[in-house]
């Protein structure tokens, strides 16, 4: 099984919108929470209340600063990172035990916790840092695409989606079949120019990232201004207020001699 299955038409994966992610970590802790009691249970924590707390997580969110070409301001891009469920991933083929495998049916890449020997080689083979070794359990852990949620008949149909996707408050995470060009995720990718991470590696990630959109700030808008005729802005405002009334009052209404402009003499 360490050999890859023949290419399937169904390629389940995530589409992550870097334009919308605010870095809130909801996907991160929701993932930890579901998986520490689900397929990957437990995701161990080490020294949780001590000086060097660490643990196993299947999804992490980075924050980068990007200096855009032709802009003097930089911008921050939050960048969630989890398994991309690659189509031709070496993390599967390097595995000596067959514990690491790609499902033929939907392309999900999984580790079988019952046969993994914890040699860590698959984590070396992953360019994306998507595999974390569970020191306490002695096996490799990775994103399961919530395989125990997306088909789970004990959950309501609307809830049969990955925990991280369901959690994401901004809607920056999308789940679906990237093998079907008509699926909403595929269309989103097409529309927004979704891209692969490190395509040069040849792993052919299924997950896609939607790039941050161009900002509509000073550099991207026609620098409009409100008209600024000569003369007193106050007088114009006054005249405007008059027009407003006249329009409502109709032509026959009294003249406006009872006011005396800015300052009464």
């Amino acid at each position: 099984m360490t050999s890859l299955p023949p290419p399937a038409s169904k390629k389940l994966g995530l589409v992550i919108d870097l334009d919308t992610c605010v870095g809130c970590q909801a996907c991160v802790t929701s993932c930890k929470e579901w998986n520490t009691q689900g397929y990957s249970a437990p995701l161990s924590d080490y020294d949780p209340y001590g000086s060097d707390p660490d643990g196993v997580w299947l999804n992490r969110v980075h924050g980068y600063e990007v200096r855009e070409q032709g802009q003097d301001q930089t911008r921050i891009v939050h960048f969630p990172r989890s398994c991309l469920h690659c189509e031709t991933p070496a993390c599967v083929t390097v595995c000596p035990t067959g514990a690491s495998y790609k499902r033929a049916e939907d392309g999900i890449v999984l580790v079988n916790p019952d046969t993994c020997i914890g040699c860590k080689l698959c984590s070396w083979a992953c360019p994306y840092g998507a595999r974390e070794y569970d020191l306490a359990q002695g096996v490799m852990k990775k994103c399961t695409l919530c395989v125990d949620r997306i088909y789970n008949e004990n959950l309501e149909p609307e809830d049969r989606q990955p925990a991280c996707v369901k959690a994401c408050p901004t809607g920056a995470r999308h789940f679906g079949d990237l093998g079907d060009p008509a699926s909403p995720v595929s269309q989103l990718v097409a529309e927004r120019g979704g891209y692969d991470l490190l395509p040069e590696m040849g792993y052919r990630p299924v997950n896609k990232y939607l790039p941050p959109r161009a900002r509509r700030d000073a550099t991207n808008t026609s620098n409009t201004e409100l008209p600024k005729p000569d003369g007193s802005a106050f007088d114009r405002l006054f005249a405007w207020a008059d027009r407003l009334l006249s329009a409502k009052a109709g032509a026959s209404k009294p003249d406006l001699t009872d006011y005396s402009g800015k300052l009464e003499g």
Binding site: L18, G23, V28, D52, P53, D54, G55, V56, W57, R60, V61, H62, G63, Y64, E65, V66, R67, E68, Q69, Q71, T74, I76, V77, F79, R81, S123, P127, E132, Y133, L135, Y195, D196, L197, L198, Y209, P211, P212
Partner: peptide, 22 residues
């Protein structure tokens, strides 16, 4: 790595966790 080169030059701002991970 991040693919963000398509919009500009990337540098690290915040790490996802305080202690070093695996």
């Amino acid at each position: 790595a991040t693919g963000l080169g398509r919009i500009g030059d990337v540098s690290q701002w915040e790490v996802p966790h305080t202690s070093e991970n695996y």
